[in-house]
Amino acid sequence: MSEEDYEEDGEMNGKKFLYVNRRGPYGTVYALESLEVVLIGAAFEQDVSLAFMDDGVYQLKKGQNTDGMGMKNFSPTYRALEMYDVEKLFVSKESMDERGLTTEDLIVDVEVIDNAAMADLMEDAEVVLSF
């Protein structure tokens, strides 16, 4: 569905929520608790997009193994987002490049967008939740 379609029946799709994730997992609780908001928020049937930039892209890194440090590995939950109809995951190209990451390194399918497209996404949002 194109952005135009969303605008035409904006009422039906609710507000455009954008979650901006800029922190890596485990070092702080923000990634985990952001994901919890997304999961709860899915029940409200809003138009949800997730953006991952800066160290936030590491949240989606494949192969996370927390066995040695005692925290729960919550990365599989990103794969479950699809079941909650949260399907618009955007990743910053610049942040990926800086970290030497490609989409092959990520646990879910994402759309890689550059800063300009990310800026458009932000301007298009109606509610921005930053974590």
Binding site: E36, V128, L129
Partner: peptide
Amino acid sequence: SGLGQLIEAGIESDRLLVFG
């Protein structure tokens, strides 16, 4: 209360601000 209250605040408010 639950996290739904945050989502509801996003829906019902004209502006949502995050301080963190």
